[in-house]
Design a binder for these strands. Structure first.
Lengths: 198, 198
DNA sequence: CAATATTTTGATTGTGCAATCAATATTTTA
DNA sequence: TAAAATATTGATTGCACAATCAAAATATTG
């Protein structure tokens, strides 16, 4: 049977509460007590469903990464050509940030604080080749495909422009002020990137 | 007299130890006990020179921001034209990251965890116009100057490309793995950015 | 050198937290 | 419906920490 419905529902409820609490008080001040209170549940229940605090945080991280990847790759697969896929990728990333702001904040809080078994922070983890962020991989594939199909120039280095694009997207995540227009940034960023790759 | 030499030296020593400890254990696990131990000093001494833990963290943040700004603007002012200034800016940012890796890690740890008086995290702070990051301002000025002098195209939006450039620089900060070449990235990034602005 | 000011120590106090667990409630199974 | 399995509670324990402070050491001054 593996997993009861109740257990699965509770787990998701607690993960949601973890996300809410992370967004509200930040990683340094997040506690099982606060998460439990927000979920209207006892602290012991969290320990019952998760082996410890880190297990909850790690599961929340996986949950957030999956949601984001699903949304973005869902948009990209609807497109045919590398150019429209690249455009869809950028649009989807920015759209997700706007529509799921809370999720992105929770993701940042975790990514910049959680560390792996060896005590190395996630954001400093030197994954090398394997175990790479699937969102990153998706972008790389679009660019490689575009070069192979001669739709993109082969003057640029895929690895390098990936870093630029990801950085340009993530930087805007932190620009949630009244004067900054995501709509405008979306258009400008697409224009700038296409100027490089075409 | 204001400040004794001993007090000033101690403060700097403790700030250095704070940076080292942040790099080693990360923000969530940094404690006055660990900082004191690393500085080979008693915990009480930190309390004597800093009003509390947050005071030490804030002073460390100011120290790190100042060092970085000094280095970058020092390189930029040596150049004459907007193009060479922009190139120098990118080169300086990347060079600083490589040469002062520890400082950048400490900076990230603080920026993504510390919050202002109202409890709003630094990285989410909506500074609007005033109180902007001087490094950001420097970049903006180079780009505006370049447009005014007709050395750069006026087809792009300064605010937008600033976000792109900063993001592209900061993203590479996290790419400290063997396969990633900063030298190559530096050249490629300059090429890509110039393609947009010229 | 003596008096005063500054610097430094380390033990102590109080707080918030993660994790545990026995007791209780609820659901599932036969 | 009775027995067994699962889910939930909240009080308790023990730990790590920030902050405090009286005492001691060191430096400065006249």
């Amino acid at each position: 049977m593996g997993e009861s419905f109740i257990a699965e529902a509770r787990r998701e409820q607690i993960i949601q509460s973890c996300i809410d609490t992370l967004e509200e008080v930040g990683y340094t001040k997040v506690s099982l007590t606060k998460i439990a209170k927000k979920a209207k549940v006892s602290t012991g229940l969290i320990s019952y469903h998760f082996s410890d605090k880190m297990d909850l945080i790690n599961q929340t991280l996986l949950y957030l990464l999956e949601k984001k990847l699903d949304f973005i790759s869902g948009k990209v697969v609807q497109e045919e050509t590398p150019t429209s896929q690249l455009t869809a990728y950028i649009e989807a990333c920015l759209a997700y940030q706007v529509a799921n702001f809370k999720y992105n904040i929770a993701l940042i809080e975790i990514v910049f604080n959680v560390e792996n078994e060896e005590g190395i922070p996630f954001y400093r983890a030197d994954n090398g080749e394997e175990d790479e962020d699937p969102i990153y991989t998706l972008l790389k594939e679009i660019l490689l495909d575009g070069q192979q199909k001669k739709e993109f120039s082969n003057q640029f280095d895929v690895e390098m422009i990936c870093v630029l694009i990801q950085g340009a997207i993530e930087e805007s995540m932190l620009k949630h002020n009244k004067t900054f227009s995501f709509e405008k940034y979306k258009n400008e960023l697409i224009k700038m990137v296409l100027k490089i790759v075409i």
